[in-house]
Structure formats: structure tokens, C-alpha cells
Computed example of a mutant assay.
Amino acid sequence: MLSNRVAKQFDVLESQKEASMGGGQLQSYSHIREALLEMGAKSSVIDQLSLPALTAVFEIVRECSTASQAKKPGRPKRGALAENLSSLDKKILKALLSSTGTVSSATLSRELGVPLSTVHRRRKWIESYLVDKSYTLKAESFGMRTAELFISTKNGSTSAVAGELLRMCDVVYSVWRTMSESGIDLAAKVICRDHEDLANILERISSISSIDKVRWCNYIRVVGRNNYPSSSIPM
């Protein structure tokens, strides 16, 4: 597979560059040239390019190959994209997760010793395919509260119930398909003003004929947050 070959060549290139930091541009040029030749590039074309141009070509080829892997039709194999991550991708991903996405590309470039243009390209790809970014309303700032509902459904009607819940967009803002030992099929997050408002929402949702039982919990305040466990990303 081309994407695997490109990722491996990129890792080799990165390790060679780190091992020869004092070797000058000539050695870096040689490493990149060899990597591109290994991927099937023509030497007559490569030899006309400068070191910055060679580096840009290599990164573009790698980005195209990993993007094409991401866009293949059908359900991707679990972990398929992660298998093609280079060591640089993993470093950027860990930095983003540990900072909840607030770290700047300029900071990443400086800390990783990588050109800013490279960080921009790799970060864009990572944020497109490997991480979820979204804004969540601070309900308490508007005098509102959030609650989570745990719903058991009847007779294989889980998907239909999920659709009905999502149509209640005035109060329901997310629905999750779940699997549990307690027979909970769906989890839904709702926003409410007070306990009376929550009671009305519960009554409204419980009236759906295919729902067997609704359990709920009310979020009172945030105790604390941890960053995503980036140690789960193999280096």
C-alpha cells in the first residue's frame, strides 16, 4: 500500500535528519532524494529541485496518500488511519490533545523543531480526520442546566427512537447509541431551565410509545477535567 510506504519513508527521513543535525543541507538533501526515489520518483525530475522544493514535494505526496486512505468508500478498518501516522504526526497529535487544541502552530513548530508550513499541513490533516472539535455552550451562564437521560427502548426500536429524540431540537442537543448491562440503549443530553422544566421534558420524552424506561441525572457543576489520555497513542 502506497500510504504505508510513504509513512515508513517519512519516519526514516525524520530519524535520519535527527541523527545528522550537524551534517548540513547536503546530507538532508540526500536523505529526501533517496526517500523520493524509493517511492518511484524520477531522478531526472528530482535533481532539478532545491532542498525546500524536495521537502514540499515529499510532504505533499505523503499528505495525498494518507488522505486517499481516509476517503476510501465503505467503513474503514478500525485504526486504519492511525497505522499510517508518522512520528511527527503522533507528536503533533499528542500536543493537541494535551493542550485541548489551544496550542498554536507556531509553538508546535518551535517545540518540535519542524518548519511552520509542515506543522500547518499536518495539523490540518490531523484535525480533519483524527480529532473532533466542537463548541459547547456554558448553560449555567444563561441560567440553564444540562441533564443526561438514559433510555431503554422496546422491540428493536432504538434507531427510530433516536430519530424522534433528535427532532426535539429545542431541548435535545445530542443522542448516543449505547451498549450496557442494564439495558440502556440510548443516552441523550438535554438543556433545561430548572427541575420543573426537566420534569416536563421527561414527561414529553417518556410519552414516546417505543420507550420502555427513562433514567436521568442532572449536572450540577464541573468538579474537574483531565486532558485526553495521549499515552494511548503509541510512539
Rank of each mutant, 00 (worst) to 15 (best):
R123Y: 03
L49T: 08
L49N: 01
A106Q: 09
T146V: 06
T107Y: 07
K124R: 13
L85N: 08
K42V: 09
H195L: 15
H31T: 04
V175W: 05
G113F: 11
S65R: 10
K17A: 01
L149H: 00
N218I: 15
D194G: 10
Y228L: 06
D11G: 09
L116G: 07
N155A: 06
F10L: 00
C64D: 15
A95R: 06
R33K: 15
D11Q: 05
K189Y: 07
L2R: 12
S207R: 13
G23T: 07
C169R: 08
L112R: 10
L13F: 01
S141Y: 14
E111W: 14
V223E: 15
I126R: 06
K77M: 09
L149Q: 05
T178R: 07
A188N: 00
I208M: 04
L13E: 00
S20G: 12
S87Y: 10
I46M: 03
Y135S: 04
Y228K: 02
S134P: 03
E63K: 09
V57N: 00
G24A: 04
A187K: 07
C192M: 00
Y173P: 00
K189C: 11
S180T: 15
S230C: 10
S87K: 13
V161N: 01
W216Y: 15
E14T: 12
F142E: 05
L81Q: 02
W216T: 11
H31P: 02
G163F: 04
L97D: 02
T107D: 11
G224Y: 06
C64Q: 15
